[in-house]
Design a protein around this nucleic acid. Structure first.
Lengths: 322, 322
DNA sequence: CTCTTTTTTGTAATCGATTACATTTTTATT
DNA sequence: AATAAAAATGTAATCGATTACAAAAAAGAG
């Protein structure tokens, strides 16, 4: 069933049918209704390729995922995709999921662009010395970067890590902690500094003592760091990642000595372990990224977006509340 | 840059260029090399829409995800997609991710088919009285169902739940358990019976006592069920879902009385909690589903596939090993 | 060297939509 | 009722690839 068939059945020309479908110019009400009726009756859908070819534009957007058979943490995928899909669903857009190996991935983006398959794409997991950076700077094609980057001015959407750092300290202060240990991630990635800044801002606002030590975001590093610490020196611990908080939790279990504990990322396991954590609203990040990419690709103006974070309060701090 | 440009630059006709690209019929070695050189030099990629339109077929396949802003467990998404993408990557296929709300989702599949956007699709989360079943039976279009269904004979790929049930009991037996409690999921879904069958088969093979009680797969139901049980009657517990195992674990923590414990699904949190579990190899399911759909859509024969499961052995049983 | 066969290449139709431009129909104006 | 202006519709070109068929070039046969 193609447009020509509908045209014949409705006794009009293909141009008229097209105009009805696309609402592109005035069609007499009577004609329009007849055409719509036939379309509905036969369940006609315009051919995707023909439409894209002629319009030189599709309603497809690309997300090139890094393929990794096994990851320590893959919990972002689902809420992120859901956020994108929510927006896409309501705007009749579709997502192409492609994948790349770390090396040689530029070829993939180039193919996507040159074959006119997508109207734009999302960039995730961009690292500081990522080979994609140069490429992204060199192209004139719509894309949105997920996560801020120190050195470039891409259009991005990012969680408010600074707020997260602030909220963690604020909450510990609220339940009465006065001597807080902050286990930061390794210096390097932008998030480390953002979270640290939030923590330092909170220190100014609340009357607390704060010590800072450094891990590398992993569970093992959390364990290793806390092992060298005298727990009794503190009355509250805030980790810059959930995994590090799990490491700390392991150690506290071992010693059977517990302090209020907050993580950062709100991984699904934190719910299970009942550890308080800073929630990054990955869903919202996806939703906003989708909207921004849509706007960008249709020539509308787009501003960077910072998504507020929440704190998920659980037993790990709640049970210490006075 | 289009095929005509390449043709002119190489001093041949578009037909020849097309033949080179598609290896569709003999082209003189010399001509071929010249064309390939030009293509490479200018980084030409055939237009996706034009190609699909003419060939009446794309290399796109669809996965329509149920959108759910918040789920208790979304850990399947990442490994499943990764499995699909691994196969797709190596076969130059692409995945369209679409989403639907529960009601009215048939329209979506119909659109996908009628607009010739995809060559086939995956069906996930099919329930016993799903409205999609009738639809799927009525169409003549390639699709693969993830997860067996009691009442239909779709082409499916599914984890070997029966083997999982068997392996759980086998492992408990190996560490010396003689009086085992199996907490089954609710009667209804096919998985419940499959897992139960495996457990019963193992009972025959090993010399153990086995009691069976029923939860509903949720953490709360695990807790509620175990609460009514006298823990000292048993020396090992096997749950038909990880979530139920977490509920049991909660209770054991409360009572500070531990028995060997195995879950089913191997959610990421089980690694964190160090609870042994049956691993369903979701990645393999994705990979195989992709391969099957590819075969099916290109007219090759396809058989149902059952993916073996593994057991991930952790502290929750290991520490009881004699 | 001519004729046949095979290999290589080119021409033009085609896929199914959109849309510029042309034409017809309708409405408004005098 | 004649003419001008506006609205509705139609014709045909176009998007960029593939491919049936035709034609030209090369190879082989005698």
């Amino acid at each position: 069933m193609k447009i020509k068939d509908i045209a014949e059945l409705a006794g009009v020309s293909v141009a008229t049918v097209s105009r009805v479908i696309n609402n592109s110019s005035k069609v007499k009400e009577e004609t329009k209704n007849k055409v719509l009726e036939i379309i509905k009756k036969y369940g006609y859908e315009p051919d995707f390729s023909a439409k894209s070819l002629r319009k030189r534009s599709s309603n497809l957007f690309g997300l090139v995922m890094r393929r990794n058979h096994i990851t320590e943490n893959d919990s972002y995928t689902h809420p992120f995709l859901n956020g994108i899909l929510e927006y896409f669903f309501h705007n009749d857009l579709k997502l192409i999921l492609d994948s790349h190996e770390k090396k040689n991935c530029i070829v993939h983006y180039e193919k996507l662009i040159k074959s006119n398959l997508v109207n734009g794409f999302f960039i995730t997991d961009l690292e500081d010395n990522d080979e994609r950076i140069e490429f992204l700077n060199s192209i004139n094609f719509p894309y949105i970067v997920i996560g801020r980057n120190n050195k470039n001015n891409f259009i991005y959407v990012d969680p408010d890590n600074e707020l997260g750092g602030y909220l963690g300290i604020k909450h510990l202060n609220e339940i009465g902690c006065k001597n807080i240990l902050f286990i930061s991630g390794s210096l390097g990635p932008a998030v480390t500094y953002q979270r640290l800044n939030g923590v330092l801002n909170a220190k100014k606002d609340f009357n607390i003592n704060l010590d800072i030590v450094y891990g590398d975001f992993s569970r093992k590093s959390g364990y290793d760091v806390i092992k060298k610490i005298n727990l009794t020196d503190y009355d509250g611990i805030f980790c810059s990642s959930d995994l590090m908080a799990y490491g700390v939790y392991d150690y506290m279990n071992e010693k059977n000595y517990y302090l209020p504990l907050i993580g950062f990322d709100d991984l699904p396991s934190s719910k299970i372990l009942k550890i308080s954590s800073i929630n990054q609203n990955i869903y919202q990040i996806g939703y906003n990224a989708a909207k921004m990419l849509h706007y960008l690709s249709s020539g509308r103006e787009v501003k960077n977006v910072i998504i507020p974070v929440d704190i998920s309060i659980r037993e790990s701090t709640l049970k210490f509340k006075k």
